[in-house]
Amino acid sequence: MADCFHVYDVRPEGFRIRYSPALVDPPGCAPRHSAPRVEKFLCRPNRLLRCARVLGRNDPLVRAVEEAFAVTTFGEHNLPERAARGEVDAFARLVQEHSGLVYRVALRILGVEEAQDASQEVWIRVWRSIGNFRGDSAFSTWLYKVTVNTCLSARRKEQGMRSGEFVGEFPQLPVQPGGEDDPEAVILNRERRDELLRALECVRADHRAALVLRHMEGLSYTEVASILEVPDGTAKGWVSRGRAALLVALAERAGDSNGSHDHGEEAS
């Protein structure tokens, strides 16, 4: 994301931010910046972040400012560098600031039962190897890499799982009735959400990681490829296959649950 935004000229009363032409807009959204331009925000980074987070935690602007200021909640700069020098206070602040990212990604790749242990393991690895972090990329990118590697090393044995196969017609999901305000629809949405997370476990681990980074974390393909340490084309392929495999798994589960529901009705 550093290619898309560049934060510079940092002063107490504000800073300048440059939008570069490399900005990739989220799919389905109209381009926000058609040409490179420079803006100046006359407010402190923390205040800007609070405003920008209304757009969502993964908004590129939020991430650009977070990365430019290393860790903003505490108003501290260069925390990774200080942690690499052995300052435990700096490391503690990094943990507090980024534990959400680590836990969120572990939760989505591994599921709720293993996410906690994996998060612990990630922070042990970060503490041991933070000296290797050279600042060439954003700290969050490096942290994503450590997190994904830790999760995938727990999942190597699953490499042979579902990919490139489905039987019969194209998979379909049942149409959900009701609007967002409908209480029944809210419950159904929660059930669909849980179903999706369970179906995600059926997708091959590396494809699942790519899918999580792209569609849940909102990263660009370049970032996904960098984190997974594969070429861009491979990252795209993994996301594409993961997406298809997830739909197949989801449709099968929906079919199964409808079937069992029908049987239940018949039995009653």
Binding site: G56, A92, G100, Y103, R104, W127, R193, L196, H215, L246
Partner: peptide, 26 residues
């Protein structure tokens, strides 16, 4: 499915306090 993935992506599950504390203690 993509809408659901995006909605889940916006959720911010808080890590258990124990994870943060143990990492710092270690």
């Amino acid at each position: 499915m993509m809408a659901l993935l995006g909605a889940i992506g916006q959720e911010t599950p808080e890590p258990p306090e124990a994870v943060v504390n143990r990492a710092i203690r270690r």
